[in-house]
Amino acid sequence: MESLSSSSSFSTTIKPHPLLPRAKKVRCSCSMKAASAFSYQKFIQFALDETKYSTSALIPSSLQENFSTLKAMDGKTELRMCSFQAPKIRLLRSLSIEASDGIQVLDFAVFPEAEFDLPIFCANFFTSVNTNIVVLDLNPLHDVINETHYKEKYYKSLIPLGLKYSECADLTTDCMQLLPWGGKLTSESLKFFSPIVIWTKFSSSQEKHNTLFSAFSEYYKAWLNLMDQTTEETDDPGYHILKRLIGETRAKDVVKRFLFNGVNELGSKSFLDYFPEYECKDGSINEKRSIVGKSFENRPWDTEGVFIGDTCS
């Protein structure tokens, strides 16, 4: 992808929250022009406004200088990109696509700083004239099927929110299936999802789009709330002892560069790190073996967030 000029004519102002004092406006390269009846720009603007309200230090990232808008080779489709950073947020980035044939795509994610074990907020949406494919989740950094401590810490309180929108595993409840399970999901993919993941497919309608926006809004507010409450994982009792002995600056250096060496390189794992079963004797990936593997036809978590997906199809 070639570099893009930051002087794009498409710009969006992040309006100050009405309860906040007026401050210097932050600009996003994502256009808010009103086009079709449904647009993912509304989702992006909501997230930016809420983030600005939650942390006043939201600023454009260095990526914004090179990635803003891009025209496709057909001269009609437009790709819009924006990226920001803030305390506790290493990168908030969005890629949206609006095509003349009604196809829209949103790839929106917020990555926490490496010092925090926060889940990653993730929204991957595809919309055509008739079809919508949706993945919305707070992607866990650890295996929530086996590491119950991590699941209890971040997801226990969010299970009711997930059940509000997703298909209930317990069919005896009167939960309305607003965004039911979207069909087979591979076991490989499942490793990266949480018990509150919304994986769904539905026909386009204003009602469904409103429901999706509502889910996006509530999930994002829930993520921001987790962010507000989280503290650095390096802030352990040993840090306080080091701080008293050698001072704050040197204590942080010892903790981050020695005790927690490598934390800033998290996320650099390869495919084989996650799926060693596909490694050949020469170290390459076995492309002849199906990567689809086992799949889950129905939601593999119950209403308590307990994994019940031992039976695969």
Results as ranks from 00 to 15, higher is better:
residue 2 E to C: 04
residue 4 L to A: 10
residue 4 L to C: 13
residue 5 S to M: 11
residue 7 S to W: 11
residue 9 S to E: 11
residue 10 F to K: 06
residue 11 S to F: 10
residue 11 S to A: 08
residue 13 T to S: 06
residue 13 T to M: 10
residue 21 P to Y: 01
residue 23 A to K: 02
residue 25 K to P: 05
residue 28 C to I: 07
residue 30 C to K: 01
residue 30 C to R: 01
residue 31 S to G: 10
residue 31 S to Q: 01
residue 32 M to I: 03
residue 35 A to M: 00
residue 37 A to E: 09
residue 42 K to D: 13
residue 43 F to G: 03
residue 44 I to F: 10
residue 44 I to R: 04
residue 45 Q to F: 08
residue 46 F to M: 14
residue 49 D to G: 08
residue 53 Y to P: 01
residue 54 S to I: 06
residue 56 S to K: 05
residue 59 I to G: 03
residue 62 S to R: 04
residue 65 E to V: 06
residue 69 T to S: 07
residue 78 E to Q: 13
residue 83 S to Q: 14
residue 84 F to R: 11
residue 86 A to G: 13
residue 86 A to T: 11
residue 88 K to F: 14
residue 91 L to N: 12
residue 93 R to D: 14
residue 93 R to Q: 15
residue 95 L to K: 05
residue 95 L to R: 06
residue 98 E to R: 14
residue 98 E to K: 14
residue 99 A to Q: 14
residue 101 D to L: 14
residue 105 V to H: 09
residue 114 A to L: 03
residue 119 P to A: 01
residue 120 I to G: 00
residue 122 C to R: 00
residue 125 F to W: 14
residue 125 F to H: 11
residue 125 F to K: 08
residue 125 F to G: 10
residue 128 S to C: 15
residue 128 S to A: 15
residue 134 V to N: 08
residue 135 V to G: 03
residue 136 L to Q: 05
residue 137 D to L: 05
residue 138 L to W: 02
residue 144 V to M: 01
residue 144 V to K: 00
residue 145 I to N: 01
residue 148 T to G: 02
residue 149 H to K: 07
residue 152 E to P: 04
residue 156 K to R: 15
residue 158 L to A: 12
residue 163 L to V: 14
residue 165 Y to Q: 12
residue 168 C to V: 11
residue 171 L to V: 15
residue 171 L to A: 15
residue 173 T to S: 15
residue 174 D to G: 06
residue 175 C to N: 14
residue 177 Q to M: 09
residue 179 L to K: 04
residue 185 L to F: 07
residue 189 S to H: 01
residue 195 P to N: 01
residue 196 I to G: 01
residue 197 V to K: 00
residue 198 I to V: 08
residue 199 W to V: 02
residue 200 T to C: 11
residue 200 T to R: 01
residue 200 T to M: 05
residue 201 K to N: 04
residue 203 S to K: 07
residue 204 S to H: 09
residue 205 S to L: 12
residue 206 Q to E: 14
residue 209 H to P: 02
residue 209 H to L: 14
residue 212 L to W: 09
residue 214 S to P: 04
residue 217 S to V: 08
residue 219 Y to W: 08
residue 225 N to W: 06
residue 232 E to K: 00
residue 233 E to M: 01
residue 233 E to C: 01
residue 234 T to V: 02
residue 235 D to F: 02
residue 237 P to I: 05
residue 237 P to G: 03
residue 238 G to K: 02
residue 239 Y to L: 13
residue 242 L to R: 04
residue 244 R to C: 06
residue 246 I to D: 04
residue 247 G to I: 04
residue 252 K to N: 03
residue 255 V to M: 09
residue 256 K to A: 00
residue 257 R to M: 03
residue 257 R to S: 03
residue 258 F to T: 05
residue 262 G to I: 07
residue 263 V to P: 02
residue 271 F to A: 09
residue 271 F to K: 06
residue 272 L to H: 10
residue 276 P to R: 03
residue 277 E to D: 06
residue 282 D to W: 06
residue 286 N to V: 10
residue 288 K to D: 15
residue 288 K to Q: 14
residue 288 K to S: 15
residue 289 R to D: 13
residue 289 R to G: 09
residue 289 R to E: 15
residue 290 S to C: 13
residue 292 V to R: 13
residue 293 G to A: 12
residue 295 S to M: 13
residue 295 S to A: 14
residue 295 S to K: 09
residue 300 P to R: 02
residue 300 P to I: 05
residue 302 D to S: 05
residue 302 D to W: 06
residue 305 G to R: 05
residue 306 V to P: 04
residue 307 F to T: 06
residue 307 F to Y: 15
residue 308 I to D: 12
residue 309 G to Q: 11
residue 311 T to H: 09
